[in-house]
Amino acid sequence: MAGRGDCGDGAGARQHVFLLPEYLKDASKKMKSGLMFVKLVNPCLGEGALYLFNMCPQQLFEIKVFKEKHHSWFINQSVQSGGLLHLATPMDPLFLLLYYLQKADKEGKFQPLDQVVVDDVFPDCILLLKLPELEKLLQHVTEEKVNPEIDKKKYYKYSKEKTLKWLEKKVNQTMAALKTNHINVGARVQSSAFFSSHQVSSDKEEDYICYAHGLISDYIPKELSDDLAKHLKLPEPSASMPNPPTKKVKLSDEPVEAKEDYTKFNTKDLKTEKKNSKMTAAQKALAKVDKSGMKSGSTKTEKEQVTADPHKAWLLLMSLKTLPEGSGFFFCVLENHQMPKDVHIC
């Protein structure tokens, strides 16, 4: 009971505010197995994070927590401190598998998946092996071998080349989703822009790809994120900017700092930042970079894949504000569940 005293008495029982996909409710009708919260690795940080696992059909959900300082909930006839909002969203398990494949690659040989996905710290990682269509997923990031004479088991080896191609597709489809939000916000953004419309559109392309790269980087180790930046021919901050932004550091090494930056950013500085962010040193530098190698993010396939809700007009505003900093807005507002003191689901 130690350490749970405040949770134990009825009057002080904590309530956790969650948003879950609606279909989990319907699935529960036929479900004999269940849903469970498990701690697995955060593939970017290598630390533990909380995930939700649906056992039937097997699916992995990431849990992000929205925190806003100085907020609380009234829930019916009760008060809940902290003002946290937990969001569970489906997660591509390949990000987690990739983490283990990369780790296992140090041995430099083909291995069966159940020898790759092992973790003393997060033993529940074996749940990942139960997920459907793993073989199909693994094609994107591995070379595989089968030895039919011995067994039908497949042996996998991490492929950096394939992984970068896969991640590029991820960046592109993320970019497309960001743009879908843009469509509905165009008028508002342009009304406050300092650029001519031509400049706005050409700069945005880079902003989007950097932002999407930042979002994807939240799911991969830093080294791979750097490789992906090179692969995408993103400008190298240190080479092209007088004041190198701390983006990379914030993304992978000091996520907490990013959160605090954001808080600062959105209190009294909000109005000035909104204007200034249109033309920061980073963006000026971006504009000078050779764009010939830049991938265009608006291909047909990406448009088809977009699933973003088109009604969130202000998302782009938020993105634009934070883009010069590189570290996306969501890193700041949402973080992988690291089990803060005041949360007791863990």
Binding site: L19, E62, L87, T89, Q173, A177, L215, Y219, A308
Partner: peptide
């Protein structure tokens, strides 16, 4: 976030 996460994942 959920709509963006859907695209990412």
């Amino acid at each position: 976030w959920p709509s963006l996460a859907a695209a990412i994942h």
